[in-house]
Design a protein around this nucleic acid. Sequence first.
DNA 1: CGTCCCCTTGAATGAAGTCAATACGCGTGG
DNA 2: CCACGCGTATTGACTTCATTCAAGGGGACG
Lengths: 255, 255
Amino acid sequence: MGAETPLIRKLQKFVRLSAEDERALDKLVQERIQKIGGREDVAREGDNPETLKVILSGWACRTKMLEDGRRQILSFFLPGDLCELNIYILREMDHTIAALTPLTYAEITRDKFEHVTSQHPRIAQAFWWDTLVAMAVQREWTLNVGQRTALERISHLFCELFIKLDVIGRTRRNRCEFPLLQSDLGEATGLSTVHVNRTLRELRSQNLIVLRGKELTIPDLERLKEVAMFNISYLHLEHESQELDPNEIGGRAAR
Amino acid sequence: MGAETPLIRKLQKFVRLSAEDERALDKLVQERIQKIGGREDVAREGDNPETLKVILSGWACRTKMLEDGRRQILSFFLPGDLCELNIYILREMDHTIAALTPLTYAEITRDKFEHVTSQHPRIAQAFWWDTLVAMAVQREWTLNVGQRTALERISHLFCELFIKLDVIGRTRRNRCEFPLLQSDLGEATGLSTVHVNRTLRELRSQNLIVLRGKELTIPDLERLKEVAMFNISYLHLEHESQELDPNEIGGRAAR
DNA sequence: CGTCCCCTTGAATGAAGTCAATACGCGTGG
DNA sequence: CCACGCGTATTGACTTCATTCAAGGGGACG
């Protein structure tokens, strides 16, 4: 099957893409590639962006600030993630997308996007799935900051990120890259940096995580899930169309 | 134009619907009407619902529970709101929809939905807009529980609900119906009922709200917005297609 | 008239934030 | 090669905001 990109690998979790679908996606993603440094902005609140973005490498986040400077990270973007599907409808960004590490991403114009999705129904379907999962993740984050304790919140975030990385093949056994700062974890979970630090200490002391120099090890994922009350169903990883022939045109996922 | 339904009134905020679009929407919504009592469930976590729902009257909410019983309200549904666009793609509900008051809603099958949206591009466009706004609202809620204090959170929620009610014409001057319990407010904001109560007392004492019997009065919305650091842009109420002739078929909002 | 919700309030407790000092690690330049 | 500096991580002491527990109070409805 060749070197799979994170995007294709992720979408395959839901829809069986044909070889032709994959070629179309590859082409779509290679047309206009941008690179920016860590901690730079991809798009700012108030902007009126023209293109959809697909992360190719690096980590980014969606973030929103209150007038007085308090800031919340609303979601993380890993390789293969799409940002700003909305741009084709909404006028103005109500939040900011920022790179957390040096970042490579593809820009896709509205026309190209519409052309590819109309020619490749399974790609359209897969993008829909991705959008709906993103909504489910956002709901889970609301639950996370609204109800879970500090220990549970951070554990939950580790579980989510580890599993998302696993989906795109970026884990090795129980290990993964982990470039986030403690202040990023704080902004994502609604906790102060100091309290994140104490919570990490606690997680380490219970041997739930090993976090050292941009690498995370989870010795026992099941145990961490229990601590986090992590229920994977919101990620909707169940494959919808196992039985669908990827070469049939216009196929629709069986329900 | 006749008696506008909340749905049409809301969608008109974004797209100019033709008389024919409106008739199609009316028909779509009147085909299969359900009624249930307050505090009953519309759809449960784990269900595999077959239909999209449109609230016709009453208030509902999306809610999710942790294993140990802690519960978070993830969003409110007011008349004219859609729930479960996702059902056509995702297999299984990862949350519950529950009525907060006696509720009337329309059920729309996938086929009907696809037929209407393919025949009426502006309706499809408006549904997209509604979905993207729902995502923006969910992000704002994450920010709300993650960063705002109790006073700010509850103020913010009041502003949001008041404005959403205003969009569908359910306010009279600075007043609106408000059937939520203090425990609902708590579950929506991640606060205990007791603390909601104290916070309401504080809001009342500053004359920011008057809340009595199921009615809310906001003497000075601008002042409440300031307290909440409420920035309306996330509701994306700017009209995209003022200049578009609603009788041109296949029109697309100018950007 | 009593009962069931829901609202209200007080007192004690607890989780997380703030402030401030210190330690670590890494890259740069002397 | 070492010293310095800067960004990040760590820790302690104290404060604050919100929760919990517990006890009334009030209104709607049978």
